[in-house]
Design a binder for these strands. Structure first.
Lengths: 326, 326
DNA sequence: GTGAAAGCGCTAACAG
DNA sequence: CTGTTAGCGCTTTCAC
C-alpha cells in the first residue's frame, strides 16, 4: 500500500485537509506548517494518487495522444516537441497506439483533459466514437472536430513561385499521389495551381508518383526521369524521405545540384541542411507546428474558442544551397 | 458531465449497486435484470470512470511503457506486437516518451498495473525512482528489476558457427562497438568467443566499428573493407540497418552475394527477406520477444515469480539465400 | 436477487 | 490559519 495524505497527516500531527492544502501550496496554510508537512511527505516518499485526484477535481493533467502508427519518423520529432512544451505547463502526454476508436474510448474512461488525434488520412464514413473529452485533430480535420493543419497547398505554391521567379520553367514533381491520401494530394494541388497560374509548360513526365513516401521510390523515379527525354531544370520533391532518394540518384548519375539541376523539397526540418548540398525547403517548421498544437489544445481545454476551429500553421521557405537562378 | 451508474440505476429502476454488479457480469444478478440494465447502459452511452474504478479496485488494466526514444524502428514493431497481445487480455498500453524517471513517477501516480521499461543502454549509478508498481526491463536489466533479454551473445556465436561449419575461415564483423552500449557489445563478444573457440585467424580489419547502427556507416565501412588487403569470405553484420548499408555497398562494387561473399546478419525480422538477396539472419523473432515480455509482465503483476528474474529469449537462425558453403 | 452503506484518496466548501 | 465534512464514481461486504 502506498502512502496517503492521511499517513502524512497523522505523522505531521495535523488534519488531512491541511495536508491537502499544503501539498497544493495553498496560501491558507502557515509557512511553518507547510514546510513541516512537505518534509514529512518527502520522507515518506509520498506520491499523489491521480485516480483519486482526478475523480474529484475532474482534471488529470494528461493529454491523450492517439498515435495510430508508431513507425513514422516525421511525427516522432513532432510528438517529442509537443511533449516538451506540454511538460512545461505541467501537462503530460500518454500515447496510445491502438486504433483511433479504441484509443478515444480508453482516454475517455481515463478522463484525460484532451485528446490529440494524429491522422494519416481522413477516414471515410465510420465516424468517431462519442467523446466527452475534447478532441483536436492534426493532419486532416475529421467531422466536426477542431483541427490544426499545415497549409501544404500554399507551401508547394510558394516553392513553385520561388523557382519561377528564378527563371525556371521546366519543372518536375516527385511525390506521393495516392488517391486516398488527402494530405499528399494537397501538396500536389498547390504545385499544379502554381503551374497553371504562372503559365508553365507541362509534360507527361512532369509529375512522378512515388505512391508512398519512400526514399527508394524517389531514387527510382529520379533515375527514370534522368534517362527520359524530359529535361527539367528543377525538381520539386514531396517530402524529406523522397528527397533522400532523389539526392542519391542525382549523385550516382553525376548531376550536380544546383549547377545542373535545382531542387526544392517539402518538409521544413533541420535534416534538410545535412545533405551534401543543403536543401532549400518549404513547409511549416516543426517548432511552429508543435506550438500551434499546444495552443489549440489549451484552447479546447479551457474552451477559449468555442465552435470547432481550424488553425492553419503558416509555412516558411528556407533558402539553402540547392537552388540557383537560371 | 458523463453518465454514471447512478443515472443507469435511476432509469432502470434498480439500486446502483445492482447496476455495478450487472456491469461486471456478476452471477448475483437475475438474467432478466442484467439484460435490462445493460440495455440502458448501452443507450446512455455509458463509459465507466476508470479513476473511480481503479481507486477502489486498485487495478487499472493499464501497462505503462517507458519509451525514451520514439524514433527507433526496431522497437516500434515490437511495441505494436506487445500492444496487440496485451489487448487480447483486456489490458491496454500507454506510452510515455518522457525520461525514464519522470515516466515511472507518472505511472506510479496513475497506479498502472505494471511498467515496461525499454532501455537503450543501462544507465550508470543514478538508479531509478522508487516505484510501488512492479517494473519489467527490456534491454539491459537495471538494478534489482526483473528483465527479459535476448541472448545476443549466443546469437552471434551461432552465426559464426554456421559460417564455420560451411568452411568459412576469414570473417569480418561490421557492427557498433560503442563502449557505453552493452547491448551492442554483447553481440561482438559472441562473435569474438566463437572466433577463438573455432580457432579462426584474426586480422586488423576483421572488426569494423560503425559506432552506431546507421546504414551509412555500414555502407562506408564495407567499401573500406572491400578496398583493403583483407579479403574475408563472409561478413557478419550487427544489425538490420547496418546490413542495409552493407548490401548497398556490395551492390555498387559489383560483389555478388553469396557467390563472391557470404553475409549473415543480426536481427531476426521479416524485412531481412526483402533484400535483392534474402538475408540469412540470426536473432530472436519479434513474436517470441513480445510473447516473452507479455508473459513476464503477467508474472510480475500476479507475483507468480517472486524474486527478480531474468528471462532469456531463445534465438533462431533463419536460413535464406545470403550464405553459401565454400 | 437486490439494496443499503462503507470507503478507496483526495479536494473543496464551510466552520471554527 | 486549521479542522470537519461532504462527496467524486465505483466495488464490495452485509443485510434483507
Amino acid at each position: 500500500m502506498s502512502v496517503t495524505i492521511k499517513d502524512i497527516a497523522r505523522i505531521a500531527g495535523v488534519s488531512y485537509s491541511t495536508v491537502s492544502k499544503a501539498l497544493n501550496d495553498s496560501p491558507l496554510v502557515k509557512k511553518k506548517t507547510k514546510e513541516a508537512i512537505l518534509k514529512v511527505a518527502e520522507q515518506l516518499g509520498y506520491q499523489p494518487n491521480m485516480a483519486a485526484k482526478s475523480l474529484v477535481s475532474k482534471k488529470s493533467q494528461i493529454i491523450g495522444v492517439a498515435w495510430p502508427t508508431v513507425e513514422r519518423p516525421a511525427w516522432s520529432t513532432l510528438i517529442t516537441k509537443i511533449n516538451d512544451l506540454l511538460g512545461q505547463q505541467a501537462y503530460h502526454t500518454l500515447l496510445s497506439i491502438n486504433p483511433v476508436d479504441s484509443a478515444i474510448t480508453i482516454f475517455n474512461r481515463f478522463h484525460v483533459d484532451a485528446i490529440l488525434l494524429f491522422q494519416e488520412e481522413s477516414r471515410g464514413r465510420p465516424g468517431l466514437p462519442q467523446s466527452t473529452v475534447p478532441i483536436l485533430c492534426y493532419g486532416k480535420p475529421e467531422g466536426q472536430l477542431s483541427a490544426v493543419d499545415v497549409n501544404r497547398r500554399k507551401a508547394m505554391f510558394a516553392a513553385v513561385r520561388y523557382l519561377y521567379e528564378r527563371n525556371h520553367r521546366r519543372l518536375a514533381y516527385i511525390g506521393d499521389l495516392s488517391p486516398n491520401d488527402l494530405i499528399q494530394q494537397e501538396k500536389y494541388i498547390g504545385f499544379a495551381e502554381a503551374i497553371i497560374q504562372f503559365g508553365l509548360p507541362t509534360h507527361p513526365l512532369m509529375t512522378m508518383n512515388t505512391a508512398g513516401n519512400s526514399a527508394d521510390q524517389g531514387y527510382r523515379l529520379t533515375k527514370q526521369l534522368l534517362h527520359s527525354a524530359y529535361e527539367p531544370t528543377a525538381i520539386v520533391s514531396g517530402s524529406y524521405d523522397i528527397t533522400v532518394g532523389v539526392m542519391r540518384a542525382l549523385k550516382e548519375e553525376g548531376v550536380i545540384v544546383p549547377a545542373d539541376l535545382s531542387l526544392i523539397s517539402y518538409d521544413n526540418i533541420p535534416q534538410m541542411a545535412s545533405f551534401d548540398v543543403p536543401i532549400t525547403a518549404v513547409g511549416a517548421p516543426i517548432e511552429r507546428i508543435a506550438a500551434g498544437i499546444v495552443d489549440s489544445l489549451f484552447a479546447i481545454i479551457n474552451k477559449t474558442k468555442l465552435s470547432p476551429f481550424c488553425k492553419q500553421i503558416e509555412i516558411e521557405l528556407v533558402e539553402r544551397a540547392s537552388c540557383q537562378p537560371l
